[in-house]
């Protein structure tokens, strides 16, 4: 989910080659996420099949350029702006999404974080309610309780993280740093350009 959505998110800012997409995603998630390029291409094939991107073989050195379709753009915007439902599977997805989101011009990050906090708090309330109704003395409920507790602690950690980064972003906005990045220059196939700092 994350790879597909991240590709679409980058493509909302302009057409890219496969290698360039990999580079963009890597640099926009702080270099913490290494996607293998094969995965990028298989995902692009699926996106094309589903009508979310279109490709054309353009320039001289025979690279394929991918462009987002109207449908693809709608999907990217939905992913970026709607809160995620918290669970062990979405932990990295949320981090990747927010990291990407701060590099995309025109997104209301504060609103996005706020909506995510509401969503995560509601997930936490749901788990707590289920726990409240459980019988602590019933040994059959123990396995479920252990998992529920892990999810509860994860929700709490996520809420603290969201509150913390809200502060970080508010400060960076106050210093008038605009973290939005333009797309990097297209890289040559097979040799992604090194990031300069």
């Amino acid at each position: 989910m994350s790879v597909k959505a991240s590709i679409l998110a980058v493509l909302t800012m302009g057409a890219c080659h496969g290698y360039q997409l990999r580079q963009e995603i890597e640099s926009r998630t702080g270099g913490t996420w290494n996607i293998n390029v094969g995965q990028i291409y298989t995902t692009l094939d699926r996106l094309e099949r589903d009508g979310l991107v279109e490709s054309n073989l353009t320039n001289v050195d025979g690279q394929t350029t991918y462009r987002i379709t109207k449908l693809g753009r709608e999907e990217a915007e939905a992913w970026l702006t709607n809160p995620l439902t918290t669970g062990p599977e979405t932990k990295n997805e949320l981090a990747n999404k927010l990291a990407l989101a701060v590099t995309i011009p025109g997104l209301d990050i504060a609103e996005l974080i706020h909506r995510q906090r509401v969503q995560t708090m509601q997930a936490l309330q749901g788990l707590t309610k289920a726990k409240r109704e459980s019988n602590l003395d019933d040994p059959n409920e123990i396995p479920w309780l252990l998992i529920a507790d892990l999810n509860i602690f994860n929700c709490e950690a996520e809420l603290r993280w969201l509150e913390h980064i809200e502060g970080t972003l508010a400060k960076s906005a106050a210093r008038d740093l605009n973290p939005s990045q333009d797309l990097l220059a297209p890289a040559k196939r097979g040799r992604p350009a090194r990031q300069e700092n």
């Binding site: 708090m121 936490l124 309330q125 788990l127 707590t128 409240r132 509860i152 602690f153 929700c155 709490e156 809420l159 603290r160």
Partner: peptide, 12 residues
């Protein structure tokens, strides 16, 4: 301050 506790409430 603790979201885990707040989650026991009916409203936050």
């Amino acid at each position: 301050h603790d979201a885990k506790l707040a989650a026991w409430a009916d409203r936050i």
